[in-house]
Structure formats: structure tokens, C-alpha cells
């Protein structure tokens, strides 16, 4: 059984201070890195001959508008079948420079996951073979999962949040 400690130490040894903010919410090893190191880390975990994180579970984005310089976050989930071990890797991006390298070279499934993230958050995955909208229409000129877009019709005055306890 692989322990969080062991993987964290292996990553620290290989990448030094490029991996930081280690945490384990509900037992799942979580760490942050910079966008320069994300592909090397994914590659390291994927091709590690002992760990074998061969399964990229998920890529998604999060918007933190109140976090200047780190408005966006891309979250990767990986899974090692051999050890039944999951790891979560986060990369923070600034809104002014919203670029991150693509993982499509490592995992074929990253293609649509990254397109979905681009579609909803506008995160640019550099080097992606076909970075265009996937679920929304091509003509859409905003990124709907960003927090500044309210769900309900903003022109209505009869539906205030206070009435709904939010």
C-alpha cells in the first residue's frame, strides 16, 4: 500500500520547491505546482515504474475571482491502479496570463477534458490540437462558468437572493 507520505517525498525529491501546499483532505493527497512543472509531474507519475499513474481521471477548472494573481485553478486527478492510489494536482493561473501547457501528449483523454475546461473558464491549453468550444455554441463570447455570470436573469427585480436564503 502506497502512503501519501511516500509519494509526497518522491515528488519533493524530484521537483524540490516546485511542488508545495501539500494537503490531504479526506485522505486524498493534494499538492500544488506551477504551470511550468505540471507536464513533467504528470509525466513523472505516469511513467514511474513503481507508481504507474496510468489513469488520468479528470481535469477541471475552478474560478476564484477574489484571489488576485491566482484567479483560476486547473485541477488534475490521477489514479494508480497498481496501488489503488489517487492524487490531486492543482495549478493556479493568473487571469492576465491564462495559459497552461496541454496534457494531450501524455493522455488522449485530456483532449476533451481540456476543451471542456476552456469552454467554461477560458483557460488556454497551449499546444492543444483542437482547442475550441465543446458543449456550448461556437458563437458564445463569454465563459459561462466564471463566477461573474449570474445564473438567473439579472434584469429581474422580483427575485432577490435574500428571499431564497442565499
Amino acid at each position: 500500500m502506497l502512503s501519501n507520505q511516500e509519494v509526497a517525498e518522491a515528488l519533493l525529491e524530484k521537483f524540490g520547491d516546485q511542488v508545495f501546499d501539500f494537503d490531504e483532505p479526506y485522505g486524498l493527497l493534494t499538492l500544488s505546482t506551477s504551470r511550468e512543472e505540471i507536464i513533467p509531474i504528470l509525466d513523472f507519475l505516469h511513467n514511474h515504474k513503481n507508481y504507474q499513474f496510468i489513469f488520468l481521471t479528470d481535469i477541471t477548472g475552478i474560478h476564484y475571482p477574489d484571489n488576485p494573481g491566482k484567479e483560476f485553478m486547473v485541477v488534475y486527478h490521477m489514479h494508480s491502479f497498481v496501488h489503488n492510489f489517487r492524487v490531486r494536482i492543482k495549478v493556479s493561473l493568473a487571469e492576465a496570463d491564462i495559459h497552461i501547457p496541454t496534457a494531450t501528449g501524455l493522455f488522449a483523454c485530456a483532449n476533451w477534458m481540456e476543451r471542456e475546461t476552456y469552454d467554461f473558464f477560458g483557460i488556454m491549453f497551449d499546444g492543444h490540437p483542437n482547442l475550441k468550444r465543446i458543449l456550448n455554441i461556437d458563437e458564445m463570447d463569454y465563459f459561462p462558468m466564471r463566477r461573474e455570470f449570474p445564473m438567473e436573469d439579472a434584469t429581474r427585480e422580483d427575485k432577490t437572493d435574500a428571499l431564497f436564503g442565499r
Binding site: T57, D58, T60, I62, H63, H77, A108, C109, N111, W112, M113, E116, G165, R166
Partner: peptide, 20 residues
């Protein structure tokens, strides 16, 4: 910490394997 999720993402198997 609120009454709603801050962010909820569904990992939908069909979405991921249909690209193959």
C-alpha cells in the same frame, strides 16, 4: 462552507470515452 457547493464537477464516463 455555504449552503451550496462552490464548485461541483461531474466526471462523466460517457463524455470521456466517447472521444475515442
Amino acid at each position: 462552507g455555504g449552503r451550496t457547493p462552490y464548485r461541483l464537477h461531474f466526471r462523466r464516463p460517457s463524455f470521456i470515452y466517447y472521444q475515442a
